[in-house]
Amino acid sequence: MHAGGLLGGEVMPEDALINVVKEDELLDVLTLAMALNYQRNSYSLWESVVKAYQDPKTSWIFNPIVVATKDIHELREALLLHRVGLQPNRHPDIWQRVAKGIVHSSEQGNVQGLIESVEFDNLLLKEIMQGSRKTEFPYLSGPKIFNYWLYVLECYAKVSWKSRELISIAPDTHILKATVKLGLCTEEVLIGSGDDRIAVANAWIKALAGSGLASIDVHTPLWLWSRAGFPPLTVT
């Protein structure tokens, strides 16, 4: 039904980068921007990212090596110029901390090097980013954004993960609502606590067991369906 365009649309926020960002820079752009992809309109974020990427005055913000050593005041001005960052203190700090985390984790100083250092093993990457070096990857290390980040890198940058079947659905507000709508969880999970999100993620793992699908595979259809206000699930 998703493939047939019956769930409310097929354009995702990250589609704004297609045919805009260079292939060898895509991993860095996706990763740095996704560290700010929470509690805001995702479409607006990626539109701002495109503007900043195309502007010679601000394109450097997507280079982890440059960002890691840049004066925080310069970084703040660049992030706010096209509204990539909205919070003048918090967002530049997060952006620079993630950039430093990437540089410290990779000989090449970029996301490609970080992924290669774990030999495309998403479980090992999870241990690093959610465990031993969690403080270097604020928000990106959170279970919601981390799993969706893995999925986005797969979809847009063609990263092939060793254990993709273990990539959990990213239980944001739309996924919570869609899960309740389909009866997999009760309305209590709509409170959105950490335990609620874990319950939703586990519900999808159980529901899709033996189907050949990873739970992250249903993220986009559910997200679009919820965002569109749940158009009826009828096949025409």
Rank of each mutant, 00 (worst) to 15 (best):
P64F: 04
L45F: 09
Y148E: 05
T220Y: 11
Y139G: 02
L6P: 08
I167P: 01
V98P: 03
M1A: 13
I191S: 15
F120I: 02
Q130E: 13
S215F: 01
D93W: 06
V84L: 11
V180Y: 04
G9C: 10
V118I: 03
W149Q: 13
I216C: 03
Q54R: 14
N63R: 15
L123A: 09
A157P: 05
K70F: 02
L86Y: 14
T173L: 10
Y53H: 02
P231L: 11
T31E: 10
G229C: 02
A178D: 07
R227K: 09
I128Y: 12
N89Q: 14
H2P: 09
F120T: 05
T173I: 04
L32D: 14
H2L: 14
I175D: 01
S226Y: 01
P64H: 11
N19P: 02
I145G: 06
S42F: 01
K158P: 07
P92Y: 12
H91K: 06
G85M: 05
A209P: 04
V98A: 01
I18D: 15
L26R: 08
P221Q: 12
C155M: 10
T179C: 07
L208T: 02
V66D: 09
D55G: 13
Q112W: 06
F146I: 00
G210A: 13
G229R: 05
D55Y: 06
P64V: 04
D55H: 09
T173P: 00
Y53L: 08
Y53C: 03
W95T: 08
Y139M: 08
E154D: 11
L140Q: 03
H91T: 03
L86C: 09
Q54T: 14
G4E: 15
S193Y: 03
R40E: 09
Y38H: 13
W223H: 12
V152Y: 08
D172A: 08
N202Q: 15
S117V: 03
E25P: 03
E165G: 07
L182M: 07
G212Y: 13
L86N: 09
D172K: 05
S215W: 04
V189K: 04
D196G: 02
A35L: 00
S106T: 12
L190W: 00
W161E: 11
I94S: 05
E154W: 08
V84A: 15
L224T: 03
S132D: 11
L7P: 12
L114V: 11
L45H: 05
H174F: 01
I169N: 00
S132L: 04
A207H: 15
G131N: 04
V111S: 08
W149I: 12
L114Y: 01
H73Q: 14
M1W: 13
S160H: 07
E188G: 07
E47Q: 15
G4V: 06
Y38G: 06
L6S: 12
Y151P: 00
L79H: 12
I115V: 09
